[in-house]
Design a protein around this nucleic acid. Structure first.
Lengths: 111, 111
DNA sequence: TTTCGATGTTCTAGAATGTAGAACATATCG
DNA sequence: CGATATGTTCTACATTCTAGAACATCGAAA
């Protein structure tokens, strides 16, 4: 078996992109909201964290605790940020998809 | 839970695209080759058929037996073709990804 | 200082997808 | 017929996807 690059699962890719979009505001609840918006689906919070953890375990993402308290009540947030390896995986994943969409008449272009 | 469109898994999308690319020459072995090429990975034939079957069960794809014999030996081929629902799923899948890549500086563009 | 409401994260479980490779089927040719 | 080439099915298991309940923690009301 010739192994090479690491690719992302479907939902992993979505979550990674959402984190990227949110920038400094990327934490569980917000990420969930972003993903639900984009996918037009009601995604469970468990689904989000499970994926986030997996992504972190793979080294695609980093996380840290936010300031315990601040304005109003509630538990401390856990912020996430995409690492270089994550960007790489995103690119690799896109690259292989591009090879397959190239030349196809799909309405959403190939390049 | 607000359910709406059906989306494709990671490998499902890849296989669907490969079938599309192959057109009239879309059958197991060829599909496997195409996928391996694009992904730069050694994909097993079992992986291909399992996905092909699932895709067909979902109505994204159709299949039929090719001419039993022809030039030289071997078992009859089973050809595949993407159906309208498959094209739709491909578009939906792409649409939700686009929403997340829009505005991001990823090297491979958003639109 | 106890309780309540708001905000967030962990944990538990099960379904669906992804993946490999052996087993099996069938046709041609010597 | 047996060897060989070509292709598909079957069996198994790992990983990913997904939901929702349980748990944690903080501010403010009482």
């Amino acid at each position: 078996m010739k192994e090479s690059k690491e690719y992302l699962g479907h939902f992993e890719e979505i979550v990674l992109l959402a984190v990227l979009q949110l920038g400094a505001e990327a934490y569980g609840a917000k990420i969930r909201q972003k993903v639900s918006e984009a996918t037009e689906r009601d995604v469970s919070i468990g689904a989000i964290y499970a994926t986030l953890d997996r992504l972190e375990r793979k080294g695609y993402m980093g996380s840290w605790q936010g300031e315990a308290t601040r304005e109003r009540g509630g538990r401390a947030k856990r912020y996430f940020k995409v690492k270089g390896a994550g960007m790489q995986a995103l690119n690799d994943t896109n690259a292989r998809r591009s090879k397959l969409t190239a030349g196809l008449d799909l309405g959403f272009g190939a390049a």
